[in-house]
Computed example of a mutant assay.
Amino acid sequence: MWRAGFKWMSLIIGATIGAGYTSGREIWEFFGHGSGLAILLVTIFFTIGCMVIMNISYSRKSTHYIPVLKDIVGARLTGFYDVMILIYLFTITVVMIAGGGATGQAFNVPNWLGIGIMVVALILLFMNGINGLLSMNQVIVPILIVGLLVVLINFMVDQNLILFSHIHEQDNWIAAFPFTALNILPIIAVIGAIGNKISSKKEIVIASVSSGVILGGISYIYNNSLIQIEQVIISYEIPLFAILKHYPVIVLIIMSVLLWLAIFKTAAAGILGIVSRIQEYFKLSFVSIVILLLVVMVPLTAIGFSTLISYTYPIYGILNLYVLTRLLLYPIWNKAD
Protein backbone atom coordinates (compact mmCIF):
# COMPACT_ATOMS: atom_id res chain seq x y z
CA MET A 1 0.00 0.00 0.00
CA TRP A 2 2.67 2.50 1.06
CA ARG A 3 4.96 1.41 -1.75
CA ALA A 4 2.20 1.78 -4.34
CA GLY A 5 1.19 5.15 -2.87
CA PHE A 6 4.71 6.50 -3.19
CA LYS A 7 4.95 5.09 -6.72
CA TRP A 8 1.96 7.22 -7.75
CA MET A 9 3.37 10.15 -5.80
CA SER A 10 6.56 9.85 -7.85
CA LEU A 11 4.50 9.90 -11.04
CA ILE A 12 2.58 13.01 -9.92
CA ILE A 13 5.66 14.91 -8.73
CA GLY A 14 7.53 13.77 -11.85
CA ALA A 15 4.85 15.37 -14.04
CA THR A 16 4.78 18.56 -11.93
CA ILE A 17 8.38 19.43 -11.10
CA GLY A 18 9.78 20.13 -14.54
CA ALA A 19 12.44 22.44 -15.90
CA GLY A 20 10.59 25.66 -15.11
CA TYR A 21 9.99 24.64 -11.51
CA THR A 22 13.43 23.16 -10.83
CA SER A 23 15.19 26.19 -12.31
CA GLY A 24 13.22 28.46 -9.95
CA ARG A 25 11.78 30.51 -12.83
CA GLU A 26 8.24 29.21 -12.36
CA ILE A 27 8.42 29.81 -8.58
CA TRP A 28 9.64 33.38 -9.02
CA GLU A 29 7.15 34.24 -11.78
CA PHE A 30 4.13 33.17 -9.70
CA PHE A 31 5.17 33.87 -6.11
CA GLY A 32 7.81 36.18 -4.58
CA HIS A 33 6.87 38.49 -1.70
CA GLY A 34 3.63 37.94 0.21
CA SER A 35 3.14 34.36 -1.00
CA GLY A 36 3.15 32.26 2.18
CA LEU A 37 -0.64 31.92 2.16
CA ALA A 38 -0.61 31.33 -1.61
CA ILE A 39 1.75 28.37 -1.20
CA LEU A 40 -0.37 26.97 1.64
CA LEU A 41 -3.42 27.20 -0.64
CA VAL A 42 -1.45 25.48 -3.43
CA THR A 43 -0.73 22.61 -1.04
CA ILE A 44 -4.44 22.26 -0.22
CA PHE A 45 -5.69 22.75 -3.80
CA PHE A 46 -3.14 20.36 -5.26
CA THR A 47 -3.92 17.67 -2.68
CA ILE A 48 -7.66 17.92 -3.32
CA GLY A 49 -7.15 18.00 -7.08
CA CYS A 50 -4.93 14.92 -7.08
CA MET A 51 -7.33 13.06 -4.79
CA VAL A 52 -10.32 13.79 -7.05
CA ILE A 53 -8.41 12.82 -10.23
CA MET A 54 -7.09 9.60 -8.70
CA ASN A 55 -10.49 8.61 -7.29
CA ILE A 56 -12.16 9.09 -10.67
CA SER A 57 -9.36 7.20 -12.45
CA TYR A 58 -9.61 4.38 -9.92
CA SER A 59 -13.40 4.09 -10.16
CA ARG A 60 -13.32 4.18 -13.99
CA LYS A 61 -10.30 1.85 -14.22
CA SER A 62 -9.11 4.25 -16.92
CA THR A 63 -6.26 3.65 -19.37
CA HIS A 64 -6.34 7.21 -20.73
CA TYR A 65 -7.66 10.56 -19.54
CA ILE A 66 -11.00 10.87 -21.42
CA PRO A 67 -13.19 9.12 -18.80
CA VAL A 68 -11.58 11.27 -16.09
CA LEU A 69 -11.96 14.48 -18.09
CA LYS A 70 -15.63 13.73 -18.83
CA ASP A 71 -16.38 13.41 -15.12
CA ILE A 72 -14.56 16.65 -14.31
CA VAL A 73 -15.71 19.09 -17.01
CA GLY A 74 -18.86 17.34 -18.28
CA ALA A 75 -19.66 15.69 -21.62
CA ARG A 76 -20.22 18.96 -23.51
CA LEU A 77 -16.75 20.38 -22.79
CA THR A 78 -14.85 17.08 -22.95
CA GLY A 79 -14.13 17.41 -26.68
CA PHE A 80 -12.77 20.94 -26.26
CA TYR A 81 -10.52 20.05 -23.34
CA ASP A 82 -9.45 16.81 -25.00
CA VAL A 83 -7.99 18.86 -27.85
CA MET A 84 -6.53 21.38 -25.40
CA ILE A 85 -4.82 18.64 -23.37
CA LEU A 86 -3.37 16.99 -26.46
CA ILE A 87 -2.04 20.33 -27.74
CA TYR A 88 -0.72 21.17 -24.27
CA LEU A 89 1.04 17.82 -23.85
CA PHE A 90 2.44 18.00 -27.37
CA THR A 91 3.70 21.56 -26.87
CA ILE A 92 5.17 20.95 -23.43
CA THR A 93 6.98 17.85 -24.70
CA VAL A 94 8.46 19.84 -27.58
CA VAL A 95 9.48 22.50 -25.05
CA MET A 96 11.21 19.89 -22.88
CA ILE A 97 13.04 18.31 -25.83
CA ALA A 98 14.22 21.79 -26.85
CA GLY A 99 15.22 22.34 -23.20
CA GLY A 100 17.31 19.18 -23.34
CA GLY A 101 19.27 20.72 -26.18
CA ALA A 102 19.60 24.05 -24.34
CA THR A 103 20.83 22.33 -21.17
CA GLY A 104 23.45 20.42 -23.11
CA GLN A 105 24.90 23.70 -24.36
CA ALA A 106 25.91 24.50 -20.76
CA PHE A 107 28.41 21.63 -21.11
CA ASN A 108 29.47 22.70 -24.61
CA VAL A 109 27.32 19.96 -26.16
CA PRO A 110 25.85 21.11 -29.51
CA ASN A 111 22.11 21.78 -29.43
CA TRP A 112 21.34 19.06 -32.00
CA LEU A 113 23.31 16.49 -30.03
CA GLY A 114 21.54 17.42 -26.79
CA ILE A 115 18.19 16.95 -28.52
CA GLY A 116 19.38 13.65 -30.01
CA ILE A 117 20.40 12.34 -26.58
CA MET A 118 16.98 13.31 -25.18
CA VAL A 119 15.15 11.55 -28.03
CA VAL A 120 17.17 8.32 -27.74
CA ALA A 121 16.71 8.30 -23.95
CA LEU A 122 12.92 8.67 -24.34
CA ILE A 123 12.75 5.80 -26.84
CA LEU A 124 14.79 3.55 -24.55
CA LEU A 125 12.60 4.50 -21.58
CA PHE A 126 9.40 3.40 -23.33
CA MET A 127 10.80 0.15 -24.72
CA ASN A 128 9.01 -1.44 -21.75
CA GLY A 129 5.84 0.64 -22.11
CA ILE A 130 4.49 2.51 -19.08
CA ASN A 131 6.52 0.41 -16.63
CA GLY A 132 9.73 2.08 -17.77
CA LEU A 133 8.43 5.52 -16.77
CA LEU A 134 7.09 4.27 -13.41
CA SER A 135 10.44 2.65 -12.56
CA MET A 136 12.41 5.74 -13.63
CA ASN A 137 10.27 8.10 -11.55
CA GLN A 138 10.77 6.02 -8.41
CA VAL A 139 14.52 6.57 -8.78
CA ILE A 140 14.78 10.09 -10.22
CA VAL A 141 12.06 11.91 -8.24
CA PRO A 142 13.54 11.18 -4.76
CA ILE A 143 17.00 12.19 -6.03
CA LEU A 144 15.60 15.43 -7.46
CA ILE A 145 13.65 16.27 -4.29
CA VAL A 146 16.59 15.52 -1.98
CA GLY A 147 19.02 17.39 -4.25
CA LEU A 148 16.86 20.52 -4.31
CA LEU A 149 16.22 20.44 -0.56
CA VAL A 150 19.89 19.90 0.31
CA VAL A 151 21.00 22.85 -1.84
CA LEU A 152 18.22 25.16 -0.62
CA ILE A 153 18.55 24.33 3.09
CA ASN A 154 22.37 24.56 2.95
CA PHE A 155 22.05 27.91 1.20
CA MET A 156 19.70 29.22 3.90
CA VAL A 157 22.03 28.06 6.67
CA ASP A 158 25.19 29.39 4.98
CA GLN A 159 23.60 32.78 4.27
CA ASN A 160 21.84 32.98 7.67
CA LEU A 161 18.48 33.35 5.95
CA ILE A 162 15.26 33.30 7.96
CA LEU A 163 12.82 30.51 7.08
CA PHE A 164 9.70 32.46 8.03
CA SER A 165 10.76 35.88 6.81
CA HIS A 166 8.06 38.21 5.44
CA ILE A 167 5.41 35.98 7.05
CA HIS A 168 3.25 39.04 7.74
CA GLU A 169 2.97 39.83 4.01
CA GLN A 170 0.22 37.71 2.42
CA ASP A 171 -1.13 39.93 -0.34
CA ASN A 172 -0.23 37.55 -3.21
CA TRP A 173 -2.61 34.74 -2.17
CA ILE A 174 -4.43 34.90 -5.52
CA ALA A 175 -1.33 33.38 -7.21
CA ALA A 176 -2.38 30.00 -5.79
CA PHE A 177 -5.09 29.66 -8.45
CA PRO A 178 -3.11 30.11 -11.71
CA PHE A 179 -0.12 28.18 -10.31
CA THR A 180 -2.22 25.15 -9.36
CA ALA A 181 -4.26 25.44 -12.56
CA LEU A 182 -1.12 25.36 -14.72
CA ASN A 183 0.20 22.25 -12.99
CA ILE A 184 -3.01 20.22 -12.67
CA LEU A 185 -3.65 19.49 -16.38
CA PRO A 186 -0.71 17.10 -16.89
CA ILE A 187 -1.83 15.26 -13.72
CA ILE A 188 -5.17 14.46 -15.37
CA ALA A 189 -3.29 13.07 -18.39
CA VAL A 190 -0.79 10.88 -16.55
CA ILE A 191 -3.10 9.62 -13.77
CA GLY A 192 -5.82 8.93 -16.33
CA ALA A 193 -3.38 6.55 -18.03
CA ILE A 194 -2.86 4.37 -14.92
CA GLY A 195 -6.32 4.27 -13.30
CA ASN A 196 -6.55 0.54 -13.98
CA LYS A 197 -3.32 0.00 -12.02
CA ILE A 198 -4.47 1.68 -8.79
CA SER A 199 -5.59 -1.04 -6.38
CA SER A 200 -6.91 0.78 -3.29
CA LYS A 201 -8.17 4.12 -1.99
CA LYS A 202 -5.45 4.13 0.67
CA GLU A 203 -2.88 4.44 -2.12
CA ILE A 204 -4.80 7.48 -3.36
CA VAL A 205 -4.69 9.22 0.03
CA ILE A 206 -0.96 8.52 0.47
CA ALA A 207 -0.08 9.72 -3.05
CA SER A 208 -2.30 12.84 -2.95
CA VAL A 209 -1.31 14.08 0.51
CA SER A 210 2.42 13.38 0.07
CA SER A 211 2.41 15.07 -3.37
CA GLY A 212 0.68 18.20 -2.02
CA VAL A 213 2.95 18.45 1.04
CA ILE A 214 6.15 17.93 -0.97
CA LEU A 215 5.15 20.46 -3.64
CA GLY A 216 4.09 23.01 -1.03
CA GLY A 217 7.14 22.47 1.20
CA ILE A 218 9.72 22.78 -1.57
CA SER A 219 7.88 25.75 -3.08
CA TYR A 220 7.93 27.62 0.25
CA ILE A 221 11.62 26.98 0.95
CA TYR A 222 12.59 27.81 -2.65
CA ASN A 223 10.52 30.99 -2.74
CA ASN A 224 11.81 32.11 0.65
CA SER A 225 15.42 31.71 -0.53
CA LEU A 226 14.76 33.63 -3.75
CA ILE A 227 13.04 36.51 -1.92
CA GLN A 228 16.16 37.16 0.11
CA ILE A 229 18.45 37.36 -2.93
CA GLU A 230 16.01 39.12 -5.26
CA GLN A 231 18.54 41.85 -6.11
CA VAL A 232 20.80 39.21 -7.65
CA ILE A 233 18.10 37.20 -9.44
CA ILE A 234 17.59 39.97 -12.00
CA SER A 235 20.94 39.03 -13.55
CA TYR A 236 20.03 35.36 -13.98
CA GLU A 237 17.65 33.75 -16.48
CA ILE A 238 17.70 30.65 -14.26
CA PRO A 239 17.24 31.77 -10.61
CA LEU A 240 18.71 28.49 -9.32
CA PHE A 241 22.11 29.57 -10.64
CA ALA A 242 21.98 32.66 -8.40
CA ILE A 243 21.96 30.23 -5.47
CA LEU A 244 24.51 27.82 -6.96
CA LYS A 245 27.10 30.57 -7.49
CA HIS A 246 27.91 30.22 -3.78
CA TYR A 247 28.95 26.58 -4.25
CA PRO A 248 31.85 24.70 -5.89
CA VAL A 249 31.69 23.85 -9.61
CA ILE A 250 30.91 20.20 -8.82
CA VAL A 251 27.62 21.23 -7.17
CA LEU A 252 26.71 23.29 -10.25
CA ILE A 253 27.38 20.25 -12.45
CA ILE A 254 25.29 17.95 -10.24
CA MET A 255 22.34 20.35 -10.17
CA SER A 256 22.60 20.89 -13.93
CA VAL A 257 22.30 17.12 -14.35
CA LEU A 258 19.28 17.13 -12.04
CA LEU A 259 17.78 19.95 -14.12
CA TRP A 260 18.22 17.78 -17.23
CA LEU A 261 16.54 14.87 -15.46
CA ALA A 262 13.63 17.15 -14.52
CA ILE A 263 13.26 18.10 -18.19
CA PHE A 264 13.51 14.46 -19.24
CA LYS A 265 10.83 13.13 -16.92
CA THR A 266 8.43 15.96 -17.83
CA ALA A 267 8.88 15.10 -21.50
CA ALA A 268 8.28 11.44 -20.65
CA ALA A 269 5.07 12.28 -18.75
CA GLY A 270 3.85 14.30 -21.74
CA ILE A 271 4.49 11.42 -24.13
CA LEU A 272 2.73 8.99 -21.78
CA GLY A 273 -0.38 11.20 -21.78
CA ILE A 274 -0.44 11.55 -25.58
CA VAL A 275 0.33 7.92 -26.49
CA SER A 276 -2.11 6.44 -23.97
CA ARG A 277 -4.81 8.68 -25.50
CA ILE A 278 -4.16 7.94 -29.20
CA GLN A 279 -2.93 4.33 -29.02
CA GLU A 280 -6.41 2.91 -29.68
CA TYR A 281 -6.37 4.52 -33.14
CA PHE A 282 -3.12 2.84 -34.22
CA LYS A 283 -2.30 -0.84 -34.69
CA LEU A 284 1.21 -0.24 -33.44
CA SER A 285 3.18 -0.97 -30.29
CA PHE A 286 3.55 1.68 -27.58
CA VAL A 287 7.20 2.37 -28.42
CA SER A 288 6.45 2.58 -32.19
CA ILE A 289 3.94 5.38 -31.55
CA VAL A 290 6.51 7.09 -29.30
CA ILE A 291 9.07 7.02 -32.15
CA LEU A 292 6.59 8.44 -34.68
CA LEU A 293 5.60 11.16 -32.23
CA LEU A 294 9.22 12.16 -31.65
CA VAL A 295 9.87 12.29 -35.42
CA VAL A 296 7.10 14.91 -35.68
CA MET A 297 8.24 16.83 -32.58
CA VAL A 298 11.97 17.21 -33.19
CA PRO A 299 11.73 19.69 -36.13
CA LEU A 300 9.49 21.92 -34.00
CA THR A 301 12.24 22.36 -31.38
CA ALA A 302 13.79 24.86 -33.80
CA ILE A 303 11.22 27.40 -32.57
CA GLY A 304 13.23 27.66 -29.36
CA PHE A 305 12.83 26.83 -25.67
CA SER A 306 12.09 30.30 -24.27
CA THR A 307 9.76 31.28 -27.15
CA LEU A 308 7.61 28.19 -26.68
CA ILE A 309 7.31 28.78 -22.92
CA SER A 310 6.43 32.47 -23.24
CA TYR A 311 3.48 31.74 -25.55
CA THR A 312 2.07 28.51 -24.11
CA TYR A 313 2.27 28.79 -20.31
CA PRO A 314 0.07 31.91 -19.86
CA ILE A 315 -2.63 30.58 -22.21
CA TYR A 316 -2.96 27.27 -20.44
CA GLY A 317 -2.78 28.83 -17.00
CA ILE A 318 -5.99 30.74 -17.85
CA LEU A 319 -7.77 27.85 -19.63
CA ASN A 320 -7.08 25.51 -16.72
CA LEU A 321 -8.76 27.75 -14.14
CA TYR A 322 -12.13 26.24 -15.08
CA VAL A 323 -10.74 22.71 -14.68
CA LEU A 324 -9.31 23.64 -11.26
CA THR A 325 -12.66 25.10 -10.15
CA ARG A 326 -14.47 21.92 -11.19
CA LEU A 327 -11.93 19.79 -9.33
CA LEU A 328 -12.18 21.78 -6.09
CA LEU A 329 -15.98 21.75 -6.20
CA TYR A 330 -16.26 18.15 -7.42
CA PRO A 331 -16.98 16.59 -4.00
CA ILE A 332 -19.87 19.08 -3.56
CA TRP A 333 -21.58 18.99 -6.95
CA ASN A 334 -20.94 15.26 -7.41
CA LYS A 335 -22.76 14.56 -4.15
CA ALA A 336 -25.59 16.86 -5.26
CA ASP A 337 -25.95 14.85 -8.48
Rank of each mutant, 00 (worst) to 15 (best):
A268Y: 01
P248W: 10
G273V: 05
H246M: 09
E230A: 15
I254E: 04
W260C: 04
I233N: 00
I229G: 04
L226T: 07
I238H: 03
I263L: 13
I233R: 11
L258W: 00
I254V: 13
P239N: 10
T266G: 02
G273K: 02
A262V: 05
A242L: 03
V205G: 02
V251W: 06
S208C: 09
S211M: 01
Q231F: 06
I263H: 06
V249R: 13
L258R: 00
Y236W: 08
I206S: 04
I253C: 14
A242M: 09
S235P: 04
E230R: 14
I227R: 10
S210E: 09
L259I: 04
S211Y: 06
Y247M: 10
N223Q: 12
M255N: 15
E230M: 12
I227H: 01
A269R: 00
L226D: 02
V213F: 11
Y222W: 06
A207S: 06
I243N: 08
V257H: 00
A207G: 01
V213L: 11
S235G: 11
P248H: 01
L259Q: 05
A207E: 02
I271N: 07
I221N: 03
M255Y: 01
I204A: 04
I234S: 13
L261G: 07
L240H: 05
V251N: 06
Y247K: 12
I206C: 02
I253K: 14
E203C: 11
V209T: 09
A269T: 05
G212S: 12
G270L: 13
G216W: 05
